[in-house]
Simulated scan of single mutants.
Amino acid sequence: MSIPTTEIIIFGASEALRNDKSILLPALDLLSQVDGVQMPAYIGLQIEDPAIGYVFLNWDSREHHEAAMAAPSHGPLRELLKPAFTSPGKKYHVIFNSDHPIQVVLQQPVTEVLLVTLKDPSYRAEVSDLFIKFKESAKKMLMFGPTLEDENLMFLVIGWESVEAHLEAVTRPELQAPMERLRTLVNREHVSHTTLTPLPMKGAVDSEGY
């Protein structure tokens, strides 16, 4: 059975990409012709450090992505991506636990990206329970799941109105004990905020020119 899978790439963003995300359009146009890909892709720069970029790309299944990697078009696609990347970055694949499509979260004004490693595999169920509690505090704009590369490496993607809204939320008294417990169960590997742009966009160019 095909299970929707999200590919996440965290990479070094070139100055050209920082100035104009539309430089990715030729690559995305080629990618849109691949079987099993769900366009648009979601592209963003880290708010804390714009030299770090993110790509969220949804696939009908991991098998569709693997077939795309083996296709003749993969070589030309990599060439088209070169102007946007200063490093190949790290690539992950995640099947998110959610009752709605991940696009709902990715379309929020700010997306928090959190990557954690379980300190022990036996903590998986408890960590998942904590994430579910956090989901209620995040107005259900939270999705999580283990990476397919390493089930002890887990992604959380959380949609917020702003960075300030996130910082305010984590000060709530009811979250202090669960957050402290989580710190004893996982190591944080990556945490940041980004604003994601869907590319290619339908219709008119948006207000920032891409």
Rank of each mutant, 00 (worst) to 15 (best):
L31M: 09
P198R: 03
Y54T: 04
A71F: 04
I9E: 08
T111S: 06
H64F: 04
V110H: 01
L130N: 08
L130V: 14
G89F: 02
S162C: 10
D20F: 09
P40L: 07
I9S: 04
R78M: 07
S61F: 00
I8M: 13
E63V: 00
S162R: 04
P198M: 07
E79Y: 01
A71R: 02
A67N: 10
T86Y: 05
D29A: 15
V205P: 06
I10P: 05
P146R: 06
T184L: 13
L185V: 11
T195K: 14
K21P: 09
I23V: 11
T5G: 01
L130D: 10
G209Y: 09
L57S: 02
S73F: 00
P50M: 07
K139L: 09
F56E: 08
E15I: 15
Q107A: 13
P101N: 12
E180M: 14
I43F: 11
H74F: 04
L182I: 11
K133R: 06
V105T: 09
L57M: 11
E48S: 03
L57E: 04
N19G: 15
S61R: 01
L175M: 01
S192K: 04
K82C: 01
M201W: 15
V110E: 01
P40E: 07
L57A: 03
V157L: 15
L115E: 05
L167W: 00
E164M: 02
Y42L: 10
T111M: 03
A41R: 07
P83Q: 06
F85S: 01
I8R: 05
F131K: 08
E15V: 15
E168K: 03
E136K: 13
F11S: 02
S22E: 14
I158R: 08
I52K: 14
E79I: 06
P121K: 08
V94W: 06
D35F: 07
L182K: 11
L142G: 08
E149R: 00
P200G: 07
M39G: 08
D99N: 13
S32N: 14
N97V: 12
N187E: 13
A204Y: 13
H100A: 12
E15Q: 15
L142H: 11
I47A: 07
L81P: 05
G12Y: 04
F134L: 03
G145V: 11
R188T: 15
V191P: 07
S14R: 13
H190L: 13
A177I: 05
G75I: 08
T147V: 06
A84M: 05
L130Y: 12
T5A: 01
S137F: 01
L199S: 08
V104I: 03
L142C: 11
V105K: 02
G44R: 02
P26G: 10
G12A: 05
K135F: 10
A165D: 04
M143P: 04
I52P: 07
T184S: 14
R78Q: 03
F11Y: 08
S61W: 02
M179I: 02
V37Q: 02
G203F: 05
F85R: 03
Q176D: 08
K119I: 08
M201Q: 15
L185C: 10
L31S: 06
E48P: 00
E126G: 04
